[in-house]
């Protein structure tokens, strides 16, 4: 039974993170390319992050109704900040002489981005993804309140029945998964940073 909750929890989080990576990198690139959009994009993702997760999910529920989709949308919005910010910072911080060399070689803006700037920013983008993922694992627990599945369910049940055992059955896997993801992704992160 608990394994079903775990699987559902992980699947929801991974889908949300994948979508978030796609949107986040695109927004990060736009913030880097378009000076007019830079402040606005960074400001919006920052604001999103400050909304309490419960309030955000409740508002989304009004639009998207009950269920996993609403939770995924909420998680995506929540995960955007570290990914967008790190993408933007990574691209901005590529050494000016590297950019100069790329331009001087006759690379187009898109070629410079794809072949040089994004690969060189990847370690930082990866750190952003790690933070987003570990965060989302715990935020996803809130999903139970808007009718989504995952490990929020046994926890919520435990609260209602005042069963510590049930609460821990839900909470411990969340903590363990967060620790495991953090451990392995930090290892990869260090290797990436060392190569760069």
């Amino acid at each position: 039974m608990i394994f079903n909750y775990i699987t559902e929890h992980v699947v929801i989080v991974l889908i949300a993170i994948l979508v978030s990576i796609l949107i986040g990198i695109v927004l990060g690139v736009i913030a880097y390319w378009v000076r007019l959009a830079e402040k606005l994009i960074l400001w919006i993702v920052e604001i999103l992050q400050t909304i309490p997760s419960l309030a955000l999910l409740a508002m989304l529920m009004i639009v998207f109704g009950l269920g996993n989709v609403t939770l995924i949308v909420g998680l995506v919005l929540y995960a955007l900040m570290p990914i967008v910010r790190n993408t933007h910072t990574g691209l901005t911080n590529v050494e000016p002489f590297i950019k100069d060399a790329a331009r001087g070689m006759g690379m187009t803006k898109l070629q410079r981005l794809v072949k040089v700037e994004l690969p060189l920013s990847f370690p930082l983008i990866f750190s952003g993804i790690k933070i987003a993922l570990v965060n989302s694992l715990s935020v996803a627990v809130m999903g139970v309140l808007i009718g989504a599945g995952g490990l929020g369910f046994p926890i919520y049940r435990g609260i209602q029945t005042q069963s510590m055992q049930l609460i821990l059955t839900g909470a411990i896997p969340v903590v363990l998964m967060a620790l495991i993801f953090d451990f392995f992704m930090s290892k990869i992160e260090r290797r990436l940073l060392k190569r760069a």
Binding site: E95, F97, M105, G106, T108, K115, A196
Partner: peptide
């Protein structure tokens, strides 16, 4: 862009791409 492809360019900081 096409002009630059026909002109070689070497800079002081070398500027090799570390990811390649």
């Amino acid at each position: 862009v096409e002009l630059r492809r026909t002109i070689g360019y070497v800079i002081q900081q070398i500027g090799l791409f570390p990811n390649m």
